[in-house]
């Protein structure tokens, strides 16, 4: 049996990196007393996998991790135990028990939804949204391991709309084949609005999505 765990990483912890977060979760699982499975081998560790690492600086509202179990446990009991073992800044939102052969969340990941608060020049950035969406292609400089690469990110922007005078929501590709970071989108909006430098912003990942834009944890 495996447990899919939906948790929130609050804004205060946004600087906690992926590896540190993994370790924090592993320790939380250890102190929770739920029956967790260890890897074999010389340095045994917990077999926990995250659906998608969060960029440093980004909070997440509904992050997903998969926890293989060594014994049966009810969803309620698991959730209660884990909740008690997590700090207030890292609460467990929901859990779902699935069969061992249930596909890994990471493999089902397709896109992610974000809410972006633009902290400077919000009016200019938000005004650029409609015109950017009208474009057939949006070129942006993507930083990859093998150097910077000019990439068309338009096909990776599935949705984008203004929320209020400071914020907008968007859905961007996030899977092995194609990933568009909020940073790239902000670069494109900056260029579109003719601003010189990218304004400060805070992006929150609000939901991880699978095929047909179904929330990942429900697939």
């Amino acid at each position: 049996m495996k447990m899919l765990v939906v948790f929130e990483k609050k804004e205060r912890l946004r600087h906690v990196g992926h590896l540190d977060l993994m370790r924090a979760m592993q320790r939380a699982l250890r102190r929770s007393g739920v029956p967790i499975a260890f890897s074999q081998g010389f340095n045994p560790h917990l077999l926990v996998t995250f659906a998608a690492p969060l960029s440093v600086g980004m909070p997440g509202l509904r992050e997903v991790m998969e926890v293989p179990l060594s014994a049966e446990i009810s969803e309620e009991e698991f959730k209660e135990k884990l909740r008690a073992a997590l700090p207030p800044e890292l609460p467990c939102v929901a859990v779902r028990a699935v069969e061992d052969r249930h596909p890994a969340p990471m493999a089902q990941l397709f896109a992610a939804a974000y809410r972006v608060t633009v902290q400077e020049n919000a009016a200019e950035i938000l005004a650029a949204i409609p015109s950017l969406l009208e474009k057939e292609s949006v070129m942006a400089m993507k930083r990859t391991k093998s150097g910077d690469k000019l990439t068309d990110i338009r096909p990776m922007i599935y949705e984008m709309k203004k929320v209020d005078g400071q914020r907008f929501d968007c859905v961007l590709a996030l899977c092995e084949a194609a990933t568009c970071k909020v940073e790239l989108l902000m670069d494109a909006l900056t260029a579109e609005s003719k601003l010189e430098t990218r304004p400060r912003y805070l992006a929150v990942r609000t939901q991880l999505l699978g095929k047909d834009f179904t929330p990942l944890e429900l697939l």
Partner: peptide, 22 residues
């Protein structure tokens, strides 16, 4: 918050750890 985006290892300053007493 602004400073935290610019310094090394910002989580040195942000707390929120398990068992911190608030």
């Amino acid at each position: 918050e602004k400073l935290l985006d610019t310094v090394l290892k910002p989580s040195r300053y942000t707390g929120g750890e398990m068992n911190a007493v608030v």
